[in-house]
Computed example of a mutant assay.
Amino acid sequence: MSGLKICVYAICKNEEAFVDKWMDSMKEADLIVVTDTGSEDDTVEKLKERGAVVYVDVVKPWRFDVARNISLDHVPEDVDICVCTDLDERFDPGWRSRLEEAWLNHKPRNKGAIVKTGRYLYNWSLKEDGTPDIQFYYFKVHERKDFRWKCPVHEFVQYFGSLPLETVYIDGMVLNHYPDPTKSRGSYLPLLELAVKEAPGDERMRYYLGREYMYKGKWQESINTLKEYLLLPNAKWCDERCAAMRWIARSYYRLGNIKEAYQWYFKAIAEVPGMRDPYVEFAKICYEQSDWPMVYYLTLEALKVKEKSRTFVNMGYSWDYTPDDLCAIAAYRLGLFHESLEHAKAALHFAPNHERLKSNLKLIQAVQKE
């Protein structure tokens, strides 16, 4: 053991179905502290039976930041590393040793005392076969002192101390999300509207609000809000700006404004040329428009990007068979049968049991023989 005291802390409500698997995953920690916010099932009893320290604190009106700060307050002061998770999340086994290794071997950029926070791979969604779909690097590992959670929803932990803050990338520490499909996102939109009202200059909350409008099919509200986001002085993070432009493009497309959709996808690509997602999403709408030259060009450009982002969300469809599949179809339509065949084979390599991909490959091979 490293001598580091590690505590997992969480909030929950009515999650008895997740308790056992979550506790099995988190048991590598020295201490597990859970704040229940008003369960009406056996969540509290099951957690206690499994060895968690449980507090009950009802939060009204509901805000995620308030609940998480209450939960953090229950973590003992002598803890070295805090790991915040939810009960529908599970680590791959061996996560503690990966965390300790990265934490202890971190080489500070600053002289003297520092404070550390950790980033690790998060599989927000998984495919049916258990392989990752949507991935990004998560941020819920931090030291015990001088951290507080901020924002009513899409909350994040913020350091407010005086020492230099450094990020530790924890290779091999992987958290997987197994969401409850019965749980509603209904509280997200009003909480995001509240967050923007509380802090109109907060670019992060305005971005999330615009994205939530898109999720709800409120296309014009999404466009307006995300354009406001792009004009904010602190909206400087290229990855997030690129995403905002992608959501604007998608919203215009849903409104039937193809010209604006194309323009905003071009802007998104220009913002972050080294990210696959804008190319692939643009290619997908071009496919629907039978714009084969654009599909072919965009998918080839996407496939030039060989590494996933370590700073933003990676969409699963940008890294599975989709780019090669679209490229194969576009090349076939353009009479580029050799190129079509190569990309059809590459697509099938990702999904060897996919019936449509197998049929496409046979069709292309038949044309090649003529």
Rank of each mutant, 00 (worst) to 15 (best):
N257I: 06
C238D: 02
L232N: 09
I248T: 05
L231I: 09
R254H: 14
C238W: 00
I223M: 07
S222H: 00
N234R: 14
A235C: 12
R250M: 07
Y229G: 08
E228P: 04
L232W: 10
K227Q: 15
L226G: 04
C242R: 06
E228L: 15
K236L: 14
L231R: 15
C242L: 04
A243Q: 12
S251W: 05
A243I: 07
I248E: 01
N234W: 01
N234G: 12
R250W: 03
L255P: 03
M245K: 15
I248Y: 02
C242T: 06
R254T: 00
L255I: 07
G256W: 00
Y252K: 07
L230W: 01
P233G: 12
L231M: 14
C238E: 01
A243Y: 10
C242P: 00
A244Q: 08
E240W: 14
W247M: 12
C238I: 01
T225Q: 12
A244E: 05
T225L: 12
W247H: 13
R246V: 13
A243W: 08
E228Q: 15
N224Y: 06
R250G: 01
R254F: 06
L230D: 09
A244T: 09
W247V: 08
R250F: 03
N224W: 01
N234D: 14
A249N: 03
M245V: 02
R254E: 09
R246D: 11
P233V: 11
W237N: 13
L226N: 07
M245I: 01
S222M: 05
W237P: 00
L232K: 11
A249W: 02
T225D: 07
P233F: 11
